[in-house]
């Protein structure tokens, strides 16, 4: 589902976005190298990358939108659909799976009454699966926004969702 209101209200990249993207460029031989970082900067400001944003970033970096789309759709952490204020990634790789990631997913989705990838009705959360978060000795593991949370129990899920 694309957010329709985004289309009509898009007024180009903000000066802050452009400045942050330009600051990255000096680190590389070629502008193309900031493709992913530019998309992440957009997400920092807007949570997700709309079609209009993608085209605007491509123009700024002098790339074809098709090239940038190729990168955007390849990357796990670039969202091409609206997401909630906080994205909760739950690890579904092997150790977390053995130690209960299916239950963690069910609890998260049930509490928020959402399917994976959907935004909760209040716009606060989106639940997504993620591959091994590099903390398997503390499985099951979730990442709440930028923060890694270890040894997830039922109580921990309630606490994360603040209820």
């Amino acid at each position: 589902m694309k957010n329709q209101t985004e289309k009509s209200s898009f007024e180009g990249l903000s000066p802050a976005e452009i400045q942050e993207i330009n600051a990255e460029i000096s680190e590389y031989e070629d502008k193309m190298a900031v493709s992913t970082e530019a998309l992440k900067i957009i997400q920092k400001h807007r949570r997700w990358v709309s079609d209009e944003c993608l085209v605007a970033v491509a123009e700024l970096l002098e790339l074809s939108p098709a090239h940038l789309e190729g990168v955007a759709t390849f990357d796990n952490l670039i969202y091409r659909q609206p997401v909630g204020k906080t994205v909760i990634h739950y690890c579904n790789s092997v150790t977390c799976w053995m130690l209960g990631s299916d239950q963690v997913r069910e609890r998260l989705c049930r509490h928020l009454d959402v399917e994976l990838g959907e935004m909760s009705a209040d716009g606060e959360y989106t639940i997504l699966p993620i591959v091994c978060l590099g903390a398997c000795d503390h499985a099951p593991v979730v990442m709440v926004g930028d923060e890694l949370r270890l040894d997830i129990t039922e109580d921990a899920v309630n606490e994360i969702l603040g209820r």
Partner: peptide, 11 residues
């Protein structure tokens, strides 16, 4: 890039 399931050393 550590992303192999089961790997948690570089972090």
């Amino acid at each position: 890039d550590e992303m192999e399931p089961g790997a948690f050393k570089d972090r």
